[in-house]
Computed example of a mutant assay.
Amino acid sequence: MRSEVIQIRTGSRETVVDLTAEIDAFLASGDGGDGLLSVWVPHATAGIAVIETGAGSDTDLLTALRDILPSDDRWGHRHGSAGHGRDHVLPGIVAPSMTVPVLDGRPMLGTWQSVCLVDTNRDNPVRSVRLSFLAG
């Protein structure tokens, strides 16, 4: 198994960050081959999703999450910025990990699919993402 942690700057706003280029670079730095890629975000307030980006779906995802998880004072978890409790519920909806099949050193994503970091937490501007490749 080969593993690497990358740092992603998310800033101080809700965001969806496409990780596909970083994933391609990680896989290209190895020996190729077939296997499974694990993408894991070790944070209690972020998740990993496969969606289309650049055509509005990333913005639509954030809008849907705002509808499902409003940033208000209803949350029991109250430290951090206003409404921060919702950020701790996010990984229950957008999982903190994903496994992607890899064939011949390339992730087997569909034409419009991208692996993305989803971060609604405005309090932490940098996120770690662990990429681990298990050769088959």
Rank of each mutant, 00 (worst) to 15 (best):
H43Y: 03
A49M: 05
A49S: 08
G54T: 02
H43Q: 00
E52F: 05
R66M: 08
R66P: 04
H43K: 07
V39W: 03
D72N: 14
A44K: 13
A49F: 02
A44N: 09
A46H: 00
W40D: 01
L69E: 13
D58W: 01
G56R: 11
D72K: 07
L69Q: 02
L61F: 15
D67M: 06
V50G: 01
G56S: 09
P42G: 08
G47P: 01
W40R: 00
S57D: 07
T63E: 14
I51S: 00
D58R: 06
P42F: 05
L61I: 12
A55Q: 09
A49E: 07
D67K: 10
A49D: 06
G47R: 09
G54S: 09
G56K: 05
W40N: 13
L61Q: 12
R66H: 14
V39L: 10
T63C: 06
V50Y: 04
W40P: 05
T45N: 04
P42T: 02
A55S: 15
A44F: 06
A55Y: 10
S71H: 13
R66T: 05
A46D: 01
L65D: 04
A55R: 12
R66N: 14
A64F: 02
T63A: 15
A55D: 09
L61G: 03
D60T: 12
D67P: 00
V50N: 08
D60H: 10
V41W: 02
A49P: 06
A64W: 07
L69N: 13
S57P: 01
L69F: 02
G54V: 07
A64G: 08
S57E: 03
V41H: 02
T53Q: 02
V39G: 01
V50R: 03
V39S: 00
L62N: 01
A44S: 02
L61V: 06
A55G: 08
I51Y: 12
T59G: 13
P42H: 04
L62E: 11
T45V: 12
T59K: 11
T53A: 07
E52Y: 08
V41I: 10
I51T: 07
L69C: 06
G47Y: 11
R66S: 08
A49G: 08
I68D: 02
S57Q: 15
L69R: 00
V41T: 14
A55P: 06
D60F: 13
A44I: 05
I48K: 10
L62D: 03
P70V: 00
R66L: 07
E52H: 09
I48L: 04
L65W: 03
S57H: 02
A46G: 01
V41Y: 00
V41K: 05
R66Y: 05
H43N: 05
L61M: 11
P42L: 01
T59M: 06
S71K: 15
A49I: 06
L69I: 11
H43M: 04
S57K: 10
